[in-house]
Design a protein around this nucleic acid. Structure first.
Lengths: 353, 353
DNA sequence: GTGAAAGCGCTAACAG
DNA sequence: CTGTTAGCGCTTTCAC
């Protein structure tokens, strides 16, 4: 029996057994490499940059991967390479109809380029809650897309400090953190006001949320209307987010209390507009004869309800596409400059106006 | 001058400079610890298990964190601890109205417990596309929630191999991978059939998707109707996903071609039902007098349109809540057994029936 | 309660 | 084209 050697032996550096300190884990790249008879680095290259590796190694590695069912651990890869291929997006709520098309195209576009999306909900208040931003930054995403969420000064500071590429979307904010893809709410309000006054409407109403952006649009609407027809009057109704049919119905009821001869309503979402149409129908108010209605967002259903709803169309998919492209571009060519895109809008004229 | 020593010196292990091989990175826990005058380990504990650390250290670390704006790198933490605090969810499309409430409550519930959600879209086809599953597994999520997506045999195998806790939701699948939260589509079809035949309807119609689940519901509907009233007839109309108002209108038109005296329609979504109502209105078909309509999902708008839509209500939020709870439970107490919850449903009777 | 050592699984950098 | 080395930033383990 050799001399007692109780604690001398170093803790046997990772022997043949496939389990580590925390129970068993899965197959690693090293396992694959060993099986293929190549170095881990070659296995890594075979997987990530197949063009840099001989066909022989490629074949051996692929065989080993197939036989083990190996799936890369992107956590480790991200840590080592400082690139996560993760993009975070923050919306007020995923349940609102407004941002869905955009998020959908964002996911599609990103995954086509090998990136994933992490989705966060900020709620309808100001900025993001602290936890949300911290957990997002903690995952070190390669980019962040903000939609309908206006970061507070502190949020902005933290984002800049974290050096994460940011795309603010939906609104063409005047003083962006970094990149912007959106459209002008003021221009839209102006065009709708011009259109409705042009149709002879003089008793207008605006229904929208009670946050800053909606209020800006409301006042732009009122100003444009006044400019087009000095005698026109505009009443405003604020509704709670998220926009709903119920809210639209109630808003129209209140508007008619205030201004019984209202002859046109501009709504900040098609759901609200559907509520307005419903309430008008119940009251025997003919649309568009007695009341013209214009929605916002041009939802899928708008063309198909009766009467078909006029609406402001936004190319939400384009917003998602551009946002994705911006971030990927910035990641892959860090020199890329801040950019700004106005995707515009169009007023889709249907039966309700 | 000392003897030439060109290549002897090891590459100066990470000196004072705050930059590494790939340009500058941010503040690390080590930086915080140094600033606080404690070991990295104590800093880690102060952040993650404050109760295990003296108040003095806690205060010093918090001060250091505040002064540096340090944000934990969860990539590194996850790699070391083998826990990501990430949960993946896969839905056919985030644009469909059906899963939104569920995803919303999932996000809410998870973030309240310190987990984040990664969202994937599988499309409306069978199973998930290979890339999607691989990228999900590659991020080593602590759990996966499937909604309205039926994994293929290969998907199942890979998920089991990856040892990821899985919750299948929406449908009470008979042979689950792991955990299940849902309701019985057959039971719903049965109850609606019973209700409509009880109202005297004998010429029924069913509008639904053309995937397996919808077809099962359709046949359950037909069977139950036959059981309740042997002389009843049921026609079926398949529509393409995603469900839309347009699809509902077209479907009703085709149904009336096939069976002009149809007196009741059961739709697999409220959007389809809205289309049916619209088309009926255009044709002067009185609802519910000449035609009864029942939707599915009890969307927010259903109660507020005119006529108010009867619908099958599902507590989607409860599904999200339970799914989140299951996964967190399983993560934190790995002994937790597979579980199954039936959240039930209710038929909300309104004006259209 | 605190710290030192070791290493999670992968890739950048560099040498052959 | 291929392999070696040295970490990425954190947490586990274990000794104090």
């Amino acid at each position: 029996m050799p001399p007692t050697d109780d604690h001398a032996a170093p803790p046997a550096p990772r022997d043949e057994s496939r389990r580590n300190r925390t129970g068993r884990r899965g197959t690693t790249l090293t396992d694959v490499a060993r099986l293929a008879g190549v170095s881990p680095m070659s296995a890594s290259r075979a997987l990530n940059k197949p063009e840099q590796v001989s066909l022989e190694i490629l074949a051996k590695v692929n065989a080993a991967v197939a036989s083990t069912g190996y799936v890369t651990n992107r956590l480790a890869g991200s840590l080592a390479s400082n690139r996560t291929h993760l993009v975070a997006a923050v919306v007020p709520s995923i349940a609102g109809p407004v941002f869905q098309d955009m998020v959908q195209s964002l996911i599609g576009e990103l995954s086509a380029r090998g990136y994933q999306l992490m989705l966060g909900q900020a709620g309808y208040g100001e900025g993001m809650n602290d936890d949300l931003l911290a957990t997002i930054i903690g995952r070190r995403p390669d980019g962040l897309v903000l939609a309908g969420v206006v970061p507070t000064a502190i949020d902005r500071q933290r984002l800049i400090a974290a050096a994460i590429p940011v795309v603010e979307t939906w609104d063409l904010v005047p003083d962006p953190i970094d990149m912007v893809v959106g459209f002008s709410h003021e221009a839209i309000a102006g065009e709708v006001a011009r259109f409705l006054t042009g149709k002879g409407c003089r008793r207008l109403a605006f229904i929208g949320g009670n946050h800053a952006r909606a209020l800006r649009r409301a006042s732009a609407f009122a100003q444009a209307a006044a400019a087009c027809a000095p005698e026109a009057r505009v009443v405003q109704q604020a509704v709670e987010a998220p926009a709903s049919v119920r809210a639209g119905r109630n808003a129209l009821a209140r508007i008619l209390d205030q201004q019984p001869d209202t002859d046109a309503v501009f709504c900040s979402s098609d759901m609200l507009a559907l509520g307005v149409l419903t309430e008008a129908g119940q009251r025997g108010l003919h649309v568009p004869g007695a009341l013209k209605v214009i929605g916002f967002g041009d939802s899928q259903f708008s063309a198909d309800i009766a009467p078909a709803l006029s609406s402001v169309h936004i190319d939400a998919q384009a917003i998602g596409r551009h946002a994705a492209a911006f971030i990927v571009e910035r990641c892959e060519r860090p020199s890329a400059a801040p950019t700004r895109i106005d995707v515009g809008f169009s007023l889709v004229q249907r039966e309700t106006s």
